[in-house]
């Protein structure tokens, strides 16, 4: 049991984004539906295709250590599913389409500064221009370039219009 829990944690810890979590959940659903009707080789092939790359190794190890008893296996999958659904999502709106390296960098920072149990939902929104917007459990923080520019024009409207008028004249 303890080995199974360690296996859970290892898999859950490798999931970095909401998209990866959705793929893994789809994988669990597929595997659970075909349990004991497919060979080990087929299972490994499914893992390689369906599971996000970051979680492949951990998943392989977990599947290899699975007991033979079908009820226990079902329980293991359900527990894993619950653990994944319990992950909290930090939504980040950025101006670029993030690469895997960027996601890894962001995820490491979150893991280090905030803690475990949080995954990212990185959205590319070009209106942001630069910086990022964060939404976490209903809380909203905006540190975007677009917001700074808007605030600058709002606060210094008089100064800016004077400057333009001065130059125009």
């Amino acid at each position: 049991m303890k080995e199974q829990d360690a296996g859970h944690n290892e898999i859950v810890d490798t999931i970095r984004t909401k998209e990866e979590r959705s793929r893994f959940l789809a994988f669990i659903e597929e595997l659970a539906g075909r349990l004991f009707r497919i060979s080990k080789e087929d299972a490994i092939r499914i893992i390689q295709v369906r599971v996000p790359e970051c979680a492949v190794a951990a998943t392989m190890r977990a599947v290899t250590d699975l007991p033979a008893d079908p009820e226990t296996v079902k329980g293991v999958f359900e527990k894993l599913e619950r653990a994944l659904l319990a992950l909290r999502i930090l939504r980040v709106d950025v101006a670029i389409s993030p690469t895997d390296a960027v996601i890894e960098h962001m995820f490491s920072w979150v893991r280090r500064e905030v803690g475990r149990g949080i995954i990212l939902d990185v959205i590319c929104d070009r209106t942001v221009l630069g910086g990022a917007r964060f939404v976490f459990e209903g809380r909203y923080r905006e540190y975007t370039l677009a917001k700074k520019i808007e605030k600058f024009f709002e606060n210094d409207r008089e100064y800016i219009s004077k400057k333009f008028l001065h130059h125009a004249s």
Partner: peptide, 10 residues
């Protein structure tokens, strides 16, 4: 309202 209160819902 979003920037003043700092909370969002979907």
């Amino acid at each position: 309202c979003l920037s003043e209160i700092g909370e969002i819902g979907f």
